[in-house]
Each structure stands twice: as structure tokens, then as C-alpha cells.
């Protein structure tokens, strides 16, 4: 399955605002996307509860994965989001 390993840039990690922005983008994608901390079980990137539960901090590496038509493009977009500071 196509995947990207991304270092999370937002200063607060994937919490309220950055998590909401990420989940909204993942929910808008045509294919289901998962997100995991490296070496841990993946969760749905469409669930704010699941994403908050990962407790991703700034500088943590996460693995996002998706399969199906458009998966590569979706992952590139989401990787760009995670690599940016979403606090602004």
C-alpha cells in the first residue's frame, strides 16, 4: 500500500487545530487514509477522536497510508499538510 513517512511540523503536534485541519482534509479524500505513529497500529485519519488519541507531538514521525485510485496524490497532499505548521 502506498505510504508516506512525515515529520509533523505543527508546534503543538496533532492537537485541536492541526488535528482538525488534517482530519478535514483526510475526510475529503476519495480514498480512506490511515495514520500511525511509526511502529504502532494505524487508525483512521477521518476520525478526530482517533487522531487526537495518537498524541502526536511536534517532530514525531507518522506514517500515512492509502490505497486505490488517487492514493498517491492524496498522500502527497496530506504529507504537505503535516509538514507545514498548521497553527496559523
Amino acid at each position: 500500500m502506498p505510504e508516506r513517512i512525515v515529520t509533523v511540523a505543527s508546534r503543538v503536534g496533532l492537537h485541536a487545530r492541526p488535528a482538525a485541519v488534517f482530519v478535514k482534509a483526510a475526510s475529503a479524500a476519495a480514498v480512506p487514509v490511515t495514520i500511525a505513529k511509526q511502529g504502532k497500529d494505524p487508525v483512521s485519519a477521518r476520525s478526530i477522536l482517533a487522531v487526537l488519541g495518537l498524541d502526536v507531538r511536534q517532530g514525531d514521525q507518522v506514517v500515512i497510508a492509502a490505497d486505490g485510485a488517487g492514493a498517491e496524490h492524496t498522500l502527497d497532499e496530506l504529507a504537505a499538510l503535516l509538514s507545514a505548521d498548521l497553527e496559523g
Partner: peptide, 9 residues
């Protein structure tokens, strides 16, 4: 705005 616009829920 993120909370006010219900982006988190």
C-alpha cells in the same frame, strides 16, 4: 475560529 466554526466538531 477553529472551535467556533465547529472544525473540531
Amino acid at each position: 475560529p477553529v472551535f467556533a466554526q465547529a472544525m473540531v466538531g
